[in-house]
């Protein structure tokens, strides 16, 4: 067998040599498919009786925001070429506990700061290990998962921590301008995340490292700094989820955020962020989060029970991962 000319991308594809290659070079089939799925789902959703009611939409917006913030953090990690973290859900729980604890002593602002800082620090420590020692990100995150739960258990005794004043936010603040506060927070995270990625030196380095770690080393970028920052931001966004959950339920416990890692990576991949890193945006993640949440609601409205959403989420992720492989690497 001779090596095919197509596999060597430095050779330009000459017209006529392979029509199919010519077409696939210009149209990204995966993105085309993705847009088609989005459109189909949007139409189905609008046509589904009960979907377009205000309470239903508000509920949808609220629930997707929790996973959404974790997904924003996960996007950072995936883009930087570190695939995913298994500890962001646990980070959210830790942030929730820190938030409620500090809130009870020093008030809301200090609580938010404590929650975000807790998330950022827990995650940055992992980033430092991964970035400077090049330790396996998956294993580090799995070990951190066990450690975080262990420490949380030690500190809280697996008890639920209640907000002393009974309620974090006055009723009026739960829906400023008629939009759930969770959604506003999620949109803020998205905007901050996208700003970081598109308009800061840090963001450019995330893409560079994600699309060529060795090249970044050779270029003389201090990769470990950027990777630590990536994980710090990821932890901060996950911390936001913890704060939102605690605000919603006016308490905090270790169970918060369990399984969010999987939902978040599913959304990130479905939206079209490349699993090998270096390609994607927060908008894609937003699309992925919306798609997964909408599909879930639509399935529910059509009488499919909740369990189907898990299966469909899994199949979609598998499909997306497989389809991504067909692109040039």
């Amino acid at each position: 067998m001779k090596p095919s000319a197509i596999s060597d991308m430095s050779i330009p594809v000459t017209p006529g040599s392979s029509r199919l290659a010519w077409i696939t070079d210009r149209i990204d089939l995966v993105d085309g498919l993705r847009i088609a799925v989005f459109a189909a789902l949007a139409i189905t959703a609008v046509l589904t009786p009960g979907f377009l009611s205000v309470p239903s939409l508000l509920a949808l917006l609220t629930t997707l925001s929790f996973v959404g913030c974790v997904a924003v953090g996960m996007t950072m990690i995936t883009l930087s070429g570190h695939i995913m973290s298994f500890s962001l859900g646990a980070t959210a729980a830790a942030a929730a506990v820190a938030f409620v604890h500090v809130l009870n002593i020093w008030g809301l602002a200090a609580g938010v700061a404590a929650g975000l800082a807790t998330g950022a620090l827990i995650s940055a420590a992992q980033g430092l290990i991964i970035g400077s020692l090049r330790a396996n990100p998956i294993i580090v995150s799995i070990a951190s998962l066990a450690l975080i739960y262990g420490i949380l258990n030690l500190l809280t005794g697996n008890a639920t921590l209640d907000v002393n004043s009974g309620s974090v936010l006055a009723a009026a603040w739960r829906r400023p301008f008629g939009i759930p506060v969770e959604t506003l927070a999620f949109l803020l995270c998205l905007a901050v995340g996208q700003f970081l990625l598109s308009f800061t030196i840090f963001g450019r380095r995330v893409f560079l490292i994600g699309s060529g770690m060795r090249s970044a080393d050779v270029l003389g970028l201090r990769v470990w700094r950027s990777v630590t920052a990536v994980y710090a931001w990821a932890g901060l966004f996950a911390g936001m989820t913890g704060i939102l959950l605690a605000t919603r339920y006016n308490q905090a416990n270790m169970e918060y955020g369990v399984g969010y890692d999987y939902d978040a990576i599913a959304a990130v991949l479905v939206g079209g962020v490349a699993i090998k890193g270096g390609l994607g945006s927060m908008w894609r993640t937003l699309a992925g989060v919306c798609l997964m949440a909408t599909a879930q609601v639509v399935l529910l409205l059509y009488g499919f029970r909740q369990e189907w959403q898990y299966l469909i989420a899994g199949l979609i992720v598998l499909l997306v991962v497989v389809l991504q492989s067909r692109r040039r690497s």
Partner: peptide
Amino acid sequence: AREGLFDRSVVENLVAGQWQ
């Protein structure tokens, strides 16, 4: 491929080290 280029646009490859 491994120690030079980034899997990004030509623009980003050109200015990769000089964003400051």
